[in-house]
Nucleic acid binder design. Structure first.
Length: 704
DNA sequence: ACTACGAGACTTTTT
DNA sequence: GTCTCGTAGT
């Protein structure tokens, strides 16, 4: 593409962001404002006008998918080889840098990357070895403590611990880090922290990268945490121009350490050039107006309002369902209707706040014979059989990796039980388990099995040295006994298939990537858990959480479960910040829709095995009424009776699940009734003020 | 050493 | 409702 073609059809703000020269800038990119186009076109612009070489550009994203998309679009615009470019995720780029300078970073060349579950099991081991009570100090909590501190740039010795609990947590933190170092493994946060520490203390290296990268581009900047911001500041030199693209209104990962304050910080550190992309190319007017009105209820926004050239379009439909079953049936009917109108199922999404909600919808779709695809869930490299196979490879690549050792030492089962391993750990005194097992050959009960396991690993390691990557993977799968184990299992067919798939993945990786050694493949497996599941091509209704929908768009969107307690989630009620994040989440849900948006809520729903009665979400009230089109509940066979379960409806005149209004307490929902006539009392859950029993004789309660 | 059963938990989760 | 974890039984 030539320059004119690159810049064709851009709006003035986009053009400004793409061609900006001489300063860094914060790009406030609203939903559907052409953010990815701006990012990729800017890189293409810089390179094709020789303002930068491909070598001198760094672009960082959060997901592999986003990084891939950027590279794909880039190679469509420019006739360059994108392979050597520094385009990737924060973690991927850190991995690259740490591999290149592993000695300076004090890591083995073969260092392995722990995913969250690897990290948790290592922590469990550390806590046990310390003799700490894991009831008082739950490993999950320790994991959160460690990650949160690392993401603030803090090591164990710098954690402020004024109480005994935090002190003990910090001790666990220190012991965990020491064990990681021994085993030559790093967790996700460690990749960032190590890189920051390395660049922080090594001026030569820092200045090398700072002068190399004339341009840095950051995607989804609102999702960066403190540590990632620190990383950015270390890599950006005095001459570097940084383009940080983000949307504070779409910040929905604060619970994982993302800190929107980075956006204000950026203006302080990199100058206050701000470009707002507010023209939306995705949704029709009513949808945008609803989104704008909703998000206006949040405080402290940087300020931004979406607009469109397109017409107002349809109003937002609001469906009130008697039950979750009815809501699901409604979604099925509506999806079918849209399908008849010629909308592809791929272009229709059902969004929900939490995964638990998908079950009812799935079963309705299944019974209706409508194809659907659920996003999220277990990913390829997270499957047990894959992790087992990878552990054999890790063992061969790095014998100090106790995590890998423990995962496979008795899988497939070979008679090495808990007692044997306990003795082994005792004997090891902190040395690698594999080495200890090798030295104490034949000793103790289970010793013979242990000896033959060590022998097998040794033979395997020897063999793998000479094999190309995919043959090595194939060899491991065949000789470890893994495949035989699953072949013998009558329910193991899928797992066998996955193991074969792993061999293909290795082959693919060797073809695609310049570094095709074992260490690189293992890093790839940890950093990219793999596409969710197969079956991508087939036409299917799209089911996912609102979180998972960020960055996507659909012709029609159903936001189900728009209820108090669910969305906003009850665990966000306590804090203003929590509630605002929920609101941003709803904002994300709304802005996914191009033409048709339906919000639904139920009067009763099964949750955690019991029936709950919820009020409609407060967010519905924050959308101007003239934008809404209520739909009446239709008579549907699937509807579970929302009231008088088992005929307990009484003479009170109210039924469970009914929305009511009280002169003093306001809006509420009936969750219980008892007595009749003058004695009748009803229990009401009020929006403000919790649950109350009211005697009907005195209380002024009316149907709402 | 392995398997089966019951108690308790249970938002979201790019890496 | 359903998944995970720990304990007791084989």
């Amino acid at each position: 593409m030539n320059l004119a073609e690159l810049l064709e059809g851009l709006n003035p703000r986009q053009h400004e962001a793409i061609t900006l020269d001489g300063s860094s800038a914060l790009i406030l990119a609203g939903a559907g404002s052409g953010k990815t186009r701006v990012l990729t076109t800017r890189i293409a612009f810089l390179i094709s006008t020789h303002k930068a070489s491909p070598h001198g550009v760094l672009a960082v994203t959060f997901t592999n998918k986003a990084a891939r998309e950027m590279l794909t679009r880039l190679s469509a615009m420019l006739p360059i080889n994108t392979r050597g470019m520094w385009v990737g995720t924060f973690h991927g780029l850190c991995n690259r840098l740490l591999r290149a300078h592993h000695r300076d970073a004090e890591l083995p060349a073969t260092f392995q990357i722990l995913d969250s579950s690897d990290q948790l099991s290592l922590l469990k081991r550390v806590i046990k070895a310390m003799g700490v009570d894991d009831e008082k100090y739950p490993p999950k909590q320790a994991q959160h403590f460690i990650n949160a501190n690392k993401e603030r740039g803090l090591r164990a010795n710098r954690v402020e611990a004024h109480d005994p609990f935090t002190q003990r947590m910090a001790e666990i933190f220190a012991a965990y880090d020491a064990q990681c170092q021994k085993e030559g493994v790093v967790d996700f946060a460690e990749l960032l922290l190590r890189t920051c520490e390395l660049l922080g203390r090594n001026a030569t290296l820092r200045e090398h990268y700072q002068s190399r990268f004339a341009h840095i581009l950051v995607d989804e900047f609102q999702d960066t945490n403190r540590l990632q911001y620190q990383w950015l500041r270390l890599l950006a030199g005095p001459q570097t121009q940084v383009l940080a693209v983000g949307d504070d209104d779409q910040s929905i990962y604060a619970f994982r350490g993302a800190d929107v304050a980075n956006m204000r910080e950026f203006q302080r550190d990199f100058g206050d050039t701000v470009i707002k992309l507010e023209q939306n190319y995705r949704s029709q007017g009513n949808i945008l107006e609803a989104a704008n009105a909703l998000i206006a209820n949040n405080r402290g926004r940087l300020g931004k309002s979406l607009w469109t050239d397109a017409g107002a379009g349809e109003r937002i439909r609001v469906y009130r369902a008697p039950s979750d079953l009815d809501e699901a049936a409604f979604v099925v009917d509506e999806a079918r209707r849209l399908q008849r109108e010629g909308v592809s199922l791929n272009d229709i999404a059902v969004l929900y706040r939490s995964n638990a909600q998908s079950r009812v919808i799935e079963s309705a779709l299944f019974n209706a014979g409508m194809p659907y695809r659920v996003y999220g869930g277990l990913r390829f490299f997270e499957r047990a059989e894959i992790k087992h196979a990878l552990a054999y490879l890790r063992m061969a690549a790095q014998p100090e990796d106790d995590g890998a050792f423990l995962r496979i030492v008795n899988f497939p089962p070979r008679g090495i039980g808990a007692r044997t391993l306990e003795l082994l750990a005792e004997q090891a005194q902190g040395r690698p388990l594999l080495q200890t097992a090798r030295e104490s050959a034949g000793a103790g009960r289970g010793g013979a099995a242990l000896t033959s396991f060590v022998a097998m690993i040794d033979v395997l390691s020897e063999k793998l040295r000479d094999l190309p990557l995919h043959e090595a993977v194939d060899h491991v799968v065949e000789t470890s006994g893994l495949k035989a184990h699953y072949v013998a299992d009558k329910d193991g067919a899928d797992r066998v298939e996955n193991l074969d798939e792993l061999v293909s993945a290795a082959k693919q990786f060797a073809n695609d990537s310049e570094a095709n050694d074992l260490a690189a493949f293992l890093a790839h497996a940890s950093l990219e858990a793999g596409e969710h599941q197969a079956g991508e091509g087939a036409e299917a209704l799209q089911l996912m959480t609102v979180h998972a929908s960020k960055g996507l768009e659909f012709h029609a969107v159903f936001a189900s479960g728009s209820e108090e307690g669910l969305f906003p989630h009850e665990q966000s009620f306590n804090t203003e910040d929590g509630l605002e994040e929920e609101r941003r989440l709803m904002y994300v849900a709304i802005t996914r829709a191009r033409r048709a948006l339906t919000l639904s809520y139920t009067e009763s729903r099964q949750l955690h095995g019991q029936t709950r009665y919820n009020l409609p979400s407060r967010f519905l009230e924050e959308i101007p009424e003239q934008l809404l089109a209520p739909i009446n509940a239709r008579k549907l066979g699937a509807s579970r009776p929302a009231f008088s379960p088992a005929g307990v409806d009484n003479a009170s005149g109210f039924h469970i699940g009914q929305n009511v209004r009280h002169t003093k307490f306001g809006a509420g929902v009936v969750i219980g009734t008892e007595g009749r006539g003058a004695d009748a009392r009803v229990q009401v859950h009020f929006r403000e003020g919790g649950q109350k029993w009211l005697a009907l004789e005195y209380a002024k309660l009316e149907p709402a």
